[in-house]
Design a protein around this nucleic acid. Structure first.
Lengths: 181, 181
DNA sequence: TAACCCATGTAAACGGTTACATGATTTC
DNA sequence: GAAATCATGTAACCGTTTACATGGGTTA
């Protein structure tokens, strides 16, 4: 949330939209988590809000990051990470795929392959758009555009790898050895 | 847990070890989660246990999967997955890296690159061992060895992609454009 | 007039981690 | 004598999701 607010002042509702649309591929939060957290951050003086009155829409609270919040965010960015546990249901399924009906398994893995290939395409379109529109900014480490680009690159590499793996599994299942193991 | 018990009968303690060592890279659970879950699975008739008395060690409860459990597992393997939310702290940091001290950021990303390259090497060693030891079983979709191999392949592709991305970010940060953005 | 978007909150439930608790045996 | 391994459990806490709750304005 601070990472988003460091780029622009946003309401809780805006933050929830960003979580769904832009940064959703690597982090998410629902509005039910966002509103209490904004209150907590304000208590810690990381953010401040002002009420913006609107004619045709409900009023909103627009949150801005403070110097305290910005400093905390800067520190956090380069702070060491403790290795986080990954959980991947498809790998879990792969681990037990020897028990499954191979045809059904192929269907599942092909479906997943397709989904990740589609997502990859979407990311690559955004990548092309960024390179077109943002040009030289993408080589400026102090630009938020560079940072967005870097995050997107992870998405691309992830989807490529995931689709490749699903395809590999499906191929192996299709070639298949003896059905009895 | 059913996926592990389908391969061999295990105690809660054994399950916890497997979660740490073998399947830990794509799924984990602590003993505090495992013991109550085993009781729940037994209530659902997915597993049964017998007490194994040991001379030099504490007695243990060894759990076996039942036909009911095996059927449920088989069904689950090919059942559709609902897209799970990924959360990646490094990508989150990358998204705000434009605010950070570039030198410190390079250190962080190089460190992560190294860690993932090391993990990749470990996986590749296991891969080589599997190919050596398990040979033709690796092309039998009905063999648990094939399934282990498939899961490992995901680990390899993941680590390769992750290390590549960390390196890419660090390279870009080092080349760096103007410091002012 | 029904569906959707904007806008903000609270409450209950769930999955998972950390900490608490106990105790025997083996290895250094 | 201390630390590590084997072995099984419970309790408290925390982050997240789902559901509950409200209400005005716009678009089809």
């Amino acid at each position: 949330m601070l990472g988003l607010l460091a780029r622009e002042a946003l309401s809780g509702y805006d933050l929830a939209s960003r979580m769904r649309e832009r940064v959703g591929f690597f982090w998410q939060a629902r509005h039910s988590q966002i509103y209490p957290e904004l209150a907590r951050l304000e208590g810690d003086e990381m953010v401040v809000h002002r009420v913006v009155e609107q004619r045709d829409r409900p009023d909103k609270k627009v949150y801005e990051i403070t110097d305290v919040g910005l400093e905390a965010l800067k520190e956090w960015v380069t702070a060491p990470v403790k290795p986080r546990a990954t959980r991947d249901e498809m790998v879990l399924k792969a681990y037990s795929v020897w028990l499954a009906d191979p045809e059904k398994a192929v269907t599942l893995f092909r479906e997943q392959q397709r989904l990740h290939e589609e997502q990859l395409l979407r990311y690559e379109e955004i990548e092309a758009w960024m390179e077109e529109e943002w040009g030289e900014d993408l080589s400026l480490p102090s630009s938020p555009r560079f940072a967005s680009y870097a995050a997107l690159r992870r998405g691309i590499i992830h989807e490529r790898g995931y689709a490749e793996w699903c395809g590999w599994v499906a191929d192996r299942l299709e070639k298949g050895g003896a059905g009895t193991g």
